[in-house]
Amino acid sequence: MTGKIPKILVYGYGNPGRQDDGLGVLLAEEIEKWTSARQFDHVHTDSNYQLNLEDAAGIAHYDLVIFADASREDIEHFSLVPLEPSEVVEFTMHAVSPAFILHLCSQVFDHMPRAYLLHIRGYEWEFMGQLTETARKNLNLATERVKNFILDTLVLSD
């Protein structure tokens, strides 16, 4: 549609050592396997325990960013919604929200990628490296949704 292939980043964050808190990171790993196998050079992944200031620099190179995180909210499987920038500063400030990162990126680097927030429902948060069974199912559903979303985005750009 536009002729330009968009650069896409899937950024998962959370702690895989705390059971379902690792959902975002595991989603990024699944997408990485998928894109590597298909040699989608313009789709990248990244992950960390939590979002930090420097992620504003990281997302500045992309046209579309999907932030993936585990959620305690009462959602069915997962939710994928557009993300708006926010200058609200959270209390800990060692970690920051994706909306804040988006806003900081626009302020510091004069670029604001289109962004989406993917919340995947989690249930248990103990010191274990394994997802709960239900969270695993949610991860699989969310992964398929993100794959389709990326494919749709790429098709529309043709």
């Binding site: 930090n52 200031l53 420097e54 504003a56 620099a57 990281g58 900081l104 302020q107 510091v108």
Partner: peptide, 10 residues
């Protein structure tokens, strides 16, 4: 200053 802070972290 903000650019420096972000890039030094990175």
């Amino acid at each position: 200053l903000a650019v420096q802070g972000v890039m030094m972290r990175k």
